[in-house]
Each structure stands twice: as structure tokens, then as C-alpha cells.
Design a protein around this nucleic acid. Sequence first.
DNA 1: TTGTATGCGTTATCAG
DNA 2: CTGATAACGCATACAA
Lengths: 341, 341
Amino acid sequence: MNREATIYDIAERLNISAATVSRGLKDHPAINKETKKRIAAVAHELGYRSNKFASNLRGQRTHTIGVIVPRLNSLFMSSVLAGIETVVNESGFNILISQSLEQQAKEKSNAITHFNNRVDGLITSLSYETEDFSHFDSFIQKKIPLVFFDRVPDTINATKIVLDNLKAGYEATKHLIGQGCRDIVHITGNLKRNVYRDRLQGYRNALEENGIPFAEHRCISNDLSEQAMADCIHNRIFNVSQLPDALFIANDSSAAFAISILKEQGYRIPQEIAIVGFNNDLISKVTEPAITTVNYPGYQMGQHAARLILNDISGQNDANVSSTVILNPELIIRKSSLKQS
Amino acid sequence: MNREATIYDIAERLNISAATVSRGLKDHPAINKETKKRIAAVAHELGYRSNKFASNLRGQRTHTIGVIVPRLNSLFMSSVLAGIETVVNESGFNILISQSLEQQAKEKSNAITHFNNRVDGLITSLSYETEDFSHFDSFIQKKIPLVFFDRVPDTINATKIVLDNLKAGYEATKHLIGQGCRDIVHITGNLKRNVYRDRLQGYRNALEENGIPFAEHRCISNDLSEQAMADCIHNRIFNVSQLPDALFIANDSSAAFAISILKEQGYRIPQEIAIVGFNNDLISKVTEPAITTVNYPGYQMGQHAARLILNDISGQNDANVSSTVILNPELIIRKSSLKQS
DNA sequence: TTGTATGCGTTATCAG
DNA sequence: CTGATAACGCATACAA
């Protein structure tokens, strides 16, 4: 006997109808307790498992939520996904994860795949590249709930969860100024992405507040890769008139690369150049010196995203009211920025 | 008009039968080319998308492959998944990813979820904890293809992809001996897992070959967490009669933690203690000194795993012949182990 | 080359 | 509290 057991098999064994079995299995209130017990017993005995296709086909629901992230290889993303998973699992949902590898084309094809798989909702953090959002149109048209986290679009009217990047940028810069830095270079990602744009604004606000003029050439935007950091430091930091006294870098691995390069050239950190990173990734704790950074509450972000999308799916909130959740950043001060002590 | 278009809608528009549409859409050879074109045109116009539930229900296939990994937060895992994805996508499959967070219980529930989702195959890398493999029984019974990579079970007869950890352990140790080290401590994970057990064997082989006796207390097994590394180094390295001249540590983040701690205590690396890590994770390049490590070809592992499981699914190979693919390790030498120069 | 008929396993509706 | 029935959308065996 290799065939899958169905509710008919159970029904036959108990001389009741398949409808009753179906109801019994779902703990329908109108079914006799005894009957339920017998159904459960036979189901177990037969190794019955509900056929999701049939159920989905019937119910027009997949109980699956798609997730598109730029990359999986960070503590942050891993935490976000763990957060999402715990929440959605409680409601009997699964998640379908894909990575865009920071490419718009891949993000588009991922979105199409999720759409064709009929996910009940889509949670996304945008790639560096994404400028065109038309791949989300089909979701909007079909009213499939859309939630963005961290790297969110400006133009789409959807639920969003972000860190207060403006505040984070402000705090980080203020901290450096407090350490006596006056010439702070900000190295960041694509300014089309809210996370980088907002941090830059925070940086500018802090400068302004302290009477330090903002200089266009002291903000460098690249793709934050190892190569880009090497180029950037050699061509834009070393080869200019005056060495800055601090670097505020938009993620920890890039900050770690920067530290490597600077130390190689004989610079002392933080004495000559102070460094602040971003994300509180594992790497920030093991460099020499350890990196001052901004904590990213990935697990909470994931949980929030999941709760919001589940609400959307169950239609608990006005489809017209799109909320934005803003989480508070937390500056973690380590040695790479402490000029004072 | 909000309803999804079906093959019936297309059929109606063209005054042909739904069966013809179904066949036309799948490029069935027995359908007129002209008819196919017209079907494709109307399908496009109507925004038709195949209903996977119906199709799966009918075909008893999900075209989905489940993946269970211990954790997502490493370059290695991210690469493996990218490798899997590229291969399976070409064949029209999707992947359903879940993380066990190194817990047996979570791995079990993940496996059950995948089973209930009717994945066509399951790719797994075991958690630290897993000792009982009964959660894979249902897959074996139902003859659902099973592929393991990296951390594989010894007892289950399934397709496996592993790095040659024995060789890697041997090469790493030999390298340290070549640098003049004679008292090498090996810090590793749970020896139930093949990856750690094999590396230990390689380590022992290298010692033996060089006439260095193996000492039980010079092999330390823990969970490789930050806390465990701190405990281990304080209690088993510092507080013993003689300081070792090298540490061979089973992953790069742990090696990075070790370096932090050792430097904090004033030890010079590699002069006093040489370090070799494992995985070639990002972190290994930015510590001071950079860590000598073993490269892990994640992308290839993923591709292999995907190809093998697709073969199993399409029944191209004997179900009885279970193959094991063994990939070659590559030692990457950096400063943390170079006593000579 | 195309059409007809049927079943895949569930669940909602309606009737009892 | 339970049963009969239809419908979800597709893909195939068989017939034409």
C-alpha cells in the first residue's frame, strides 16, 4: 500500500461521510466529540496528511508568504527570517525565501515566481539596484498584501518597517563629533535607497547642528563591496589634500575592510582616523579595534513584518491605511571611535 | 473583472476545447503551431497564469524542493542556496528554505512541514544536535529523494555531497607542522558530525606522520559559540601547564573570537600561537592578522546537490545506488599561521 | 490534430 | 450533528 490516505479512506473505515471527516479533522464545532476522536485515531493510523493542493485549490489560499531579500549571508537577514518564520508558523503559514543578490533583474524574476506560486503575501527588502517597481504591480492589482522592510520603496503605498536611519545617522555622527572629530567622511551605498539617504541626512543634521559645513566630496557613494572600498580609500581618502579624522561607513563589513586597508598603510585607529560602522554584524566585534556600530534589530523587524502581513491577509485592517513601523536605533560604542580614552 | 483566467476562458475565446489549450500551453507536440500561437496570445492578453494547485493536484508533483540548513547567516550557506537555486530554477522548480538554528527539534518540525507540503525532494545539512534521524523516515518510506550536504548522517543511505574534511584537516595540520608547530590544539564542534570527526582524523594522521603523539586533552569539542570559545580558551588553554604553539579551529568566526581573546591577553599571533580556521568566511580576511583557512566551495556544493536531487526526482538513477560526491579542499594561507617569514 | 469525459482531494452549501 | 453534492482548474486516456 503506497497510495496516500485521503479523507475517503478514513470515512470508509468509519462508515461515515467524507464531509464529516473533513469537519472532524478541522475541529469543526458541530461535530460530536466522540466522532472526532475516532476520526483522529484512524487518521493517525493511516498516516493521513491533508492534501494542500486540494485544499488550496478549493480555498484559493496557499498559506504561503514569499520573501525576497538582497542576500542571506548576514546575521541581520538570518535574524529577520527567523523572526518572520516564528510568527507565521504560529498561524500555519510557510515562507518561500529567495535572494535577489542585489540585482534588479533577479528581484523581478523572484517576484514573478512568487506571484505564479500564488503566495498569499510578499515581504521584500529591495536590492541595491532596483529603480523600477513594476514587478510589484501585479500584486497590487490582485490586492495581494505587500510588506517592505529595511530597504523600502518611496513611491509604493504599502506597509513598511524601517529602522530610524535618520536618527541612527545623526547619533553616529554626533558621537564622532563628541570625540573631537571635525572632518568626517561618510561612505555609503546607493542613495536611491532610503536607508542610505536617511543616514546621510542624519549625518548632515548632526554636522549642521555643530556648525560644521557639509562638503559634497566628503560623502562617497559606492556598492560597498570589498573592491569598491579599496578603490574608494586609495583614491578618495589617501590621494586628497587632507586626511579626514573619521569615517562613518554604512555597513560593518565595509568598515572592517576599511580598517584593514588603513592599518596596512600604517594609520592608527581611532587615534588618527576614527571609524563607525553599521549593523552590529558579527564582524564588528572581532576586528582590531572592534567597531562602533548601530544595532539592527533584525528579529523584531521580521516579527513585525510577519504580523503586519498576516493582518493584511486576514483583512483586519483597512487596505487603504498603510502603516509604517519605525524602530529605534541603538548606537553600540566600541574602540574604533574612542579617541578620548 | 477580478477573477483569475483559466484555460476554460482561453478555450471559450478561441472556440476550442480546454484540453487543447492545456496541451498548447505546455507545448505538446501534437498541437498545431498556429493553434499554439493563438492560445499563447489569448493567454497573454488575459493575464493567464497556470494554477499550480490544480496542476499539482492532478500531477501529484509540487515542483518544489525543500531545504533545511542549520543557519543562513554565512557566506557559505548563502552561496550554497544560490547554487541550488540557479540549477533547480532551470528545471522549473522552486525551493522552500528553512533554518533549524542548530536544534534537532526545529529540524524535525521543519522536516515535517516540508513533508506535509509535499516537496518533491529534500536537501539537508544537519544541525549540531541531531542524533535521531527518524524525521527522515517518512521521506524514505514514500521514496521522496533525499540529499545531504556538508553535515551528513552516517547511517542513512542517501546521496551526499561533502568536502574532503579528512584531507582538509590533514593539510591544515601539516601546514602548521611545517611552520614549526609541535603542540597543536584542535578546537572543534560536535564529533558526532562527520565534518568535525573527519577533520580530527586528518589532524591525527598529520601528527602521526610527523611523529608527534596525539594527546586526548589537546582536542577540545564545544558548540563553537562565542561564549564557548571564551570559556575554552580561558580554562583549557591559559590554565594549563604549557601553552600550545598553534590552534586549529573548526570555523572562522570561532577562530576570530580566539584571536580577539588571545590578543587581549597580550599574546602575539602567529609568533607565539599560530591559528588556522575553516570556511574562508568573510571574517577571516579582516582580522589582524588575517586567518589561514580552508576554502569551502559552497556554490558548487549547492549546484551538485541540486543536480543530484533532480536526477533522483526524474528517476534517472537507480534508487539503490546512492552516490557520494567528495569535493577537494583548498588551504588558503594567510598571516595567522606564518611563523616563518 | 482536436475533443470528451473523468478524477485528483478538499470544503462549502444545502438539506436532513 | 451528519450526509450528499458540487466546484475548485488542470491533465490525461481514450475516442474521433
